[in-house]
Write a protein that binds this DNA or RNA. Structure first.
Lengths: 343, 343
DNA sequence: ATTCCAAGTCAAAGCGCTTTGAAACCCGAG
DNA sequence: CTCGGGTTTCAAAGCGCTTTGACTTGGAAT
């Protein structure tokens, strides 16, 4: 069913039918009702491509899958983020399109998406320190919003980010207050902007307590279970092992827990652990009492917020740059406790 | 840059330029080269919507996010699957579009996607036993392929699935061969078709050893870490606890491991564990030697295969139904061992 | 020279929608 | 009656592409 046949059935012109369906005022209530009823009856939906061609907008938001550094590690956070974003977009009549490319081609893909008119805007994931994609997108003139920030980017751009620096500062202070002095940091790849900020928060808190960061207690890599396990095992084998560990993700923290247990120690008593928790729907931090003390910020909610902002941005391109800082909450679970007394 | 201005710059008609770019034979090699060069120079890309409108195809594949039973639990497998699928689709010039809806509306969304001409085909995730979406899609006439199968569906349909029955049968036999007699099963929701088949494989293997399945050793729910933990804890507290446990996902298995350790037991010695492993990029089963003995099948690879098949299907709608069975491999890790001797 | 044919090129129609500018209608005021 | 003005409807152009059917060529065959 298309506009033409629908309007023929109604004995009206395409103009009138189109207007009736799109809520224009120059249509009498009687005809509007009649048209709407017919549209429902024949299950008519305007063809997306034709509509897009006529209006010049695609009503699609693009998102490039973060295939990160070296290995194509698909971010576990992706599913929840997309779920939130698509939900929000749907409310505004937008669809979400996923692309995936080798890292080198990413610029080419943005260019192409724009040249083809395939998307009205994009969400940029996993920003690096001095991320080249930001100037690129600006140059292309494709509306975009960044999930995170990029240190070293001079110009204005739209972003929504968690206050990673502050949340890791708070977490570190929390451990310091419990008497911990040797605190390990298992961070994400430090080419990623968020990881850089988390480390800053960590070292700032340490500095506040007069503690110099110890390189032997700091590791950074992809935040897998194995990474959490291996680095924790190494740290616990040190002459002066840490009494607490700060992990950058639940998955890494699970590895940390495994290493602690395999060393014959108990988490929360012998070694305290705090992790960042993206509040993933499929990886809950315990049922009632959280397993891990954690800095928590829902990535799903971030997806919703980013989508809303981007839609608003597209509607009003002249608007001032949009920025939005999310504060993570510090939830206390069973993985932290006072520093164990010696001997 | 659009076709019109490009052809004007070249002093050719739109017809010729279009044909040159699309590889039609009625264009001399000289002009073709000239056109291609100019297209590159001006970074020309045909507008997706205009092209789609003219050809009647959208070159987009749809995929509905599996918001499952009750809670909107986003499948952890989603990221890897989509990553594989989009990669394969890109190779054929297709894009992937994600939609997400409340469960009740799912039929409506498929109808709408089709009516709007937004997609040329869809991938159906997480099929249930007697899944109503299959007859619905058939009725709508939208090309589709199912990731999994649906017991009780009489008519033919296209699917790619792991041989879940056989892989759980093999895993169970493996445990039986090690002398285990009380084997727990932590299954997914048994409205899901895959879970039903896994249980069938499990009970068949038990039956082959003359063992009646014990309801106290079988649980099914969403496959979270907490689920794995709680049910394992319960089972280990039984008068006759299991000596081995079969888990339906890595995440659940991680919960199983935690429960085993908290009970003061050792995995692989006191309690054996086998899990299904989707080979997720961010949740590797150990580095060199697998942590868990597992039935392994890459969901990323499944994504690639499904995408390829769907594209072929759209190209040739008259083709016979496509089905493809993937066999999981049984990889032996450190989580299994002979049944512990009593006393 | 003329005819014919293949190779190369083109103008124009059409895909399904929105939107502009014009026309038709209706009703009360003059 | 006629006119004016708001209300309602319409025909047609345009969005950027593909594709049909026709029109030029240049050269080989007659």
């Amino acid at each position: 069913m298309n506009l033409k046949t629908l309007s023929e059935k109604l004995g009206l012109s395409q103009t009138t039918v189109s207007r009736a369906l799109n809520g224009y005022p120059e249509v009498s209530t009687a005809t509007r009702l009649r048209v709407e009823e017919a549209a429902r009856q024949y299950n008519y939906r305007p063809n997306s491509r034709a509509k897009g061609l006529a209006t010049g907008r695609s009503m699609v938001i693009g998102q490039i899958i973060p295939t990160s550094i070296q290995h194509e590690m698909v971010n576990p956070v992706f599913g929840d983020f997309v779920s939130g974003a698509t939900q929000a977009l749907a409310g505004h009549g937008y669809d979400m399109m996923i692309s995936r490319v080798l890292d080198e081609d990413e610029g080419k893909v943005y260019r192409e998406l724009h040249a083809r008119g395939a998307v009205d805007g994009v969400i940029l994931q996993g920003p690096l320190v001095e991320d080249p994609r930001i100037p690129l997108l600006r140059e292309i003139g494709l509306p975009f919003i960044v999930h995170g920030r990029s240190t070293g980017e001079a110009g204005p751009y739209n972003w929504v980010d968690v206050n990673n620096r502050r949340s890791f500062q708070r977490a570190t202070r929390f451990l310091l207050d419990l008497g911990h002095r040797r605190i390990g940091l298992l961070n994400g790849h430090e080419t990623m902007d968020f990881a850089r900020r988390r480390r800053a928060g960590y070292t700032e808190a340490l500095a506040g307590a007069g503690i110099a960061p110890d390189p032997a207690l700091m590791a950074s890599d992809e935040m897998t279970e194995s990474f959490g396990f291996a680095r924790t095992r190494d740290m616990l084998a040190l002459a002066a092992p840490p009494t607490a560990i700060l992990a950058s993700s639940m998955l890494a923290a699970i590895g940390v827990r495994r290493a602690i247990q395999e060393a014959g120690l108990r988490m929360g008593r012998d070694v305290s652990v705090i992790t960042h928790d993206d509040d993933l729907s499929y990886l809950k931090n315990g049922e009632d009492v959280p397993i891990f003390t954690a800095t928590r910020s829902s990535v799903r909610r971030a997806g919703i917020i980013l989508a809303e902002k981007l839609v608003a941005l597209i509607a009003n391109p002249a608007a001032a740059p949009v920025t939005h800082m999310l504060e993570a909450e510090l939830v206390v679970g069973r993985s932290t406790g006072p520093v164990p007394v010696k001997g």
